[in-house]
Structures are given as structure tokens and as C-alpha cells.
């Protein structure tokens, strides 16, 4: 007897995976909202300071003036009398820059370690995974605090520290993907025609492992921004570069007298990370074949 499929005799047209992913992504209102939110924040950060050319370090009005009391500083002033609005507009640059850089560092270390461990297995895997586990027992924020304290709170050090403390999760994910894919037929086929390891790792397996890694990379940007904010809150950010984290860090003592000094920059971080994570969720749905048909 022939084994026949009853579900679908009319096979759907072949669609480019990226086009299909975009079609699913587009159908999620939450994902589109996240994309819109992040786009606005990025555009304002890039072009806002040109249109609203107020020095965020300049003292413009009486300290701790509430929002909507003076036209000079429409969103109020901080504890030194600096314009909140100017800080919010310009502060996104440093926060986003550190977030994206740190996420890149995380992804690069993570994929490198995960790919080598998951491809070679054996003692390479053992050694790399022990190192990964070692990094995972160090509470990431505390470790980053130590690094930044020891090596000066400049933006590159902050980004580097965040990358160094957060790669293990990415490495584990990459390793699992590489282990799964290396056993598939097309990798064996590649090996049987004499492809070198390097080619198999980067040209054959990596492209096929990319979907979950892209999702994780997106979410990592959000985590990195939260890290940067946390370090800033503890006073570990570059005091000479205006960032949302710096605003929170310098305003935290005045919370009970002036709600806006921390609430506003915190809300900006929240909205940015919200946008990033909604996009990440949308990408996850878009790349996950199990969820596509729902």
C-alpha cells in the first residue's frame, strides 16, 4: 500500500525563507510595534541633537524644576539644573552604542566558543565548556562591576566588560545548534567530498544555525542595554558622556523629591529594551517553523 499524505495535495509555492520570515514578522502587531518604537528612538538619538541643540551638561535653570514649569526646560531639570530633555535626546547615543557594541562582543565570543565546542566535541568541547561554566558561576553584574572599577569607567571598558560577562549563554546556544547540525546529512556530505573543517564550520553549519543566533543576538542587545543601565545606576559609567544611565545614576539620591529625574531616563531605557525584545520575539516566531501556521 502506498503511504500517502492526506493533508495537502497542493503544495505551496516555494518562498524565499527571508521573505517568509518577513511575512510572519509583519503579521505580528507586537513585533511591528517594537520595530516602530525602536526606529523612533534611533532616529531621535541620531538627529534629535541637531534639531534640539542644547548642551546636556549646561546649567539652564533652577535645580530640580518639575516638568512643564518652564519653557526653557520643558521636561524639567536635574539636580544640577541641567535640561532633562537635552539629556534624554542625546543620552540614547551612548546607551545604544554601548548596548550594540557589547552585544556584538557577546555574540562573537559566544559563537566562536560554541562553534568550536559543538563542532569538534571531545576534549575541545570539554575544555571550552568548563571555561563557559566557570564564567557562568560569576554573577555577571558583580563581575562587570569589578572589571569596570579596576579598569576605569570609560565606554569601551564598559562595553567590553558587558561582553566578557554575558557570552556564556550565547556559547551554549551556538554549541547546541552546531552539535545538532553537524550530525545532519549535508554536513556529512560536505565532509565526504573533502571540505575542510573551517569551511564546514563557517560556510556550511553557521548559515544554517543563524536563525536562533539572530534571535539571541537581538535579545542580547536588550540585555546589554540593561547591563549598561545597571552599571551606570551604580555610578560606573563615563561621567563625561551623557547617557540615560548616567542621568539615573546622578539622580537616584533625589528620587523622593523629584520623581522625574530617574523616571524619565528609566522609561527611555524601558521603551528601548521593550522595542528590542518585541522585535526579538517577532523574529523568533518568524524563524520558528512550528509556530508559522498558527
Amino acid at each position: 500500500m502506498t503511504v500517502l499524505d492526506t493533508k495537502d495535495e497542493s503544495l505551496p509555492r516555494a518562498e524565499h525563507p527571508a521573505a517568509e520570515a518577513w511575512r510572519v514578522f509583519r503579521s505580528r502587531p507586537a513585533a511591528l510595534f517594537g520595530l516602530l518604537l525602536l526606529s523612533i528612538i534611533v532616529i531621535v538619538s541620531l538627529f534629535g541633537p541637531v534639531l534640539y541643540a542644547v548642551d546636556p551638561f549646561e546649567i539652564v535653570w533652577a535645580p530640580l524644576t518639575p516638568p512643564f514649569e518652564t519653557e526653557t526646560a520643558i521636561l524639567g531639570t536635574d539636580n544640577l539644573g541641567r535640561d532633562m530633555l537635552a539629556g534624554l535626546i542625546v543620552g540614547g547615543r551612548a546607551t545604544l552604542l554601548v548596548g550594540v557594541t557589547a552585544a556584538l562582543i557577546t555574540i562573537i565570543i559566544g559563537i566562536l566558543v560554541g562553534a568550536l565546542a559543538g563542532y569538534y566535541l571531545g576534549w575541545v568541547d570539554d575544555v571550552l565548556m568548563r571555561i563557559t561554566e566557570f564564567f557562568q558561576v560569576l554573577p555577571p553584574l558583580l563581575f562587570a562591576m569589578v572589571l569596570v572599577t579596576l579598569f576605569s569607567p570609560s565606554l569601551p571598558v564598559v562595553a567590553m566588560s558587558i561582553g566578557i560577562v554575558s557570552w556564556p549563554a550565547t556559547a551554549r546556544l551556538a554549541r547546541a545548534e552546531f552539535m545538532r547540525i553537524r550530525g545532519l546529512e549535508y554536513v556529512s556530505a560536505g565532509r565526504s567530498i573533502g571540505a575542510r573543517d573551517g569551511r564546514l564550520i563557517w560556510r556550511v553549519i553557521l548559515p544554517n544555525a543563524l536563525a536562533p543566533l539572530i534571535v539571541s543576538a537581538t535579545l542580547t542587545i536588550g540585555v546589554a542595554i540593561l547591563f549598561e543601565a545597571g552599571l551606570s545606576f551604580l555610578g560606573l559609567s563615563d561621567p563625561n558622556t551623557m547617557s540615560w544611565g548616567l542621568m539615573i545614576g546622578s539622580g537616584r539620591q533625589y528620587v523622593l523629591d523629584a520623581w522625574w529625574v530617574v523616571t524619565l531616563p528609566g522609561a527611555m531605557i524601558f521603551l528601548t529594551v521593550l522595542g528590542v525584545s518585541l522585535i526579538g520575539d517577532g523574529l523568533n516566531d518568524a524563524f520558528n517553523p512550528k509556530l508559522r501556521e498558527r
Binding site: M1, T2, L4, T6, K7, D8, E9
Partner: peptide, 10 residues
């Protein structure tokens, strides 16, 4: 032998 064709969609 096999039966030609497929089971129709319900």
C-alpha cells in the same frame, strides 16, 4: 500493486 492517486482532502 498500489492504488493510484491520493486520499482526498476532507
Amino acid at each position: 500493486l498500489e492504488i493510484p492517486g491520493v486520499v482526498p482532502s476532507l
